[in-house]
Amino acid sequence: MGEKTQNSELKTQNSEKKPKATRDAYGDTLMELGQKRSDIVVLDADLSCSTKTNKFAKAFPERFFNMGIAEQDMIGTAAGLALTGKVPFASTFAVFETGRAWDQIRLTVCYSNTNVKLIATHGGITVGEDGASHQALEDIALMRALPNMTVIVPADAAETASVINTVADYRGPVYVRLGRARVPYVLPDDYNFEIGRAFTFNIGKDVNIIAAGIMVATAKKAAAILAKDGIDAGVINMSTIKPLDEETLLRAARSSKLIITAEEHSIIGGLGSAVSEFLSENHPVPVKRIGINDTFGCSGDSEELLKFHGLSAEDMMKTIKEALK
């Protein structure tokens, strides 16, 4: 008993931790994995300082391959390493990883069903100042369309650590989308990620918000504001976008007359599409997709950009109230 108390006192609660970028959590977890497992190898395309694979590179130089600015070659090389029994983590910005090397991912990762982990950072609009050329808003759509691919978008740094450890043990192609900006911790301390299992904060009677990535924190904020107005809003963290947690989705759709999806991605082809596809065939309910409305991003501060594109908690609250009218 005494020991237990001491341990829990030593451990900082997630709710008290300062916001941390999911890419930073990736870099730290990769280091730990590298110490534990000699089959982990890492590839990067000249962005290791930004993707945070540089920590692994420094600690395990013989297992780190900088491929230069050559994403297509990076993916093929990763597939080759996987075919000799290594577990390659290949990282660059989401826009280059999924767009520049899509055919390579299709042929040598998915069709060949190789054990490659595609861990992309700088997903979404919160890339910020670099602007549209660097903001991946279509990556989930591109990856979700590929057979054999698992698609994961963690919500916070703790979930990211859990995701990275999980996918290292999982056999098969995985795409993990991480962000550049610091994000608050949203998941409980005892949460452990499982592929294909959503985390339900609560199920709402009026509306349920199915969110992924940074939009989970936004959804929680919106739900708290809505509660004050007497609207019972549920929040679900759908971190695995493929395969979807269909059971949880059905539960949410049966509980409320409205489903909202929220993602830092185009409303075409991402979480909103995946949820709409499933519900329209299995339990049709009105779905409103919150995301980037079929447009490119632009330069700006990430918080400003979220507001500009209607992805703030206030925007979400307004959208929900409008849809419930």
Binding site: Q72, G76, A78, D103, Q104, L107, T108
Partner: peptide, 15 residues
Amino acid sequence: QGLSVANGMALGLKL
């Protein structure tokens, strides 16, 4: 695409 995969295999074998 084959040469990239061949490189990856060759590197894996060396490791």
